[in-house]
Amino acid sequence: MKEYKRPLPITTFWSQPFWEGCKRHELLIQQCKICNAKLFYPKLFCPSCLSSELGWIKSGGKGKVYSYTTVYGYQPEAFTDDIPYILAVIRLEEGVQMMSRIVDCKPEDVKCDMNVVVVFKDVTDEFTLPMFKPLLSVFKNS
């Protein structure tokens, strides 16, 4: 695999199932077994009820772009080759939010509340990053 120079996630032991899921191209989120709260990013215990009985559920991988920005400059040096790149906060159908990238989409085509679906980018042997692409392109490309 080509050398990957960008920073990789600095993980915790309780987020391992999430990253393992990504490697299998599954987007996992936590759910509290006591109060049923859906949690992202992964927590050691439930921030709502403090229970440690947390399970994992598979997300459908669909959501909307809550907000976004296209980066043309002032970015950390490691991302110079990626310019321009689209950063976005994605609101998943399950109700949780995550930072990610919009891919397979021109900067001028991204809009707030646009429907997106997860795509998995195997960036190294150890890490797969979930990113998102416009939902329509699923039909165009497949």
Binding site: R6, P9, I10, V71, P76, A78, L129
Partner: peptide, 19 residues
């Protein structure tokens, strides 16, 4: 977040823009 945001190339200068 060094786990959930930094790997995507997010940084302080992009914060105001998202808002």
């Amino acid at each position: 977040s060094e786990e959930w945001e930094t790997p995507y190339g997010f940084f302080m200068g992009a914060l105001g823009s998202l808002v």
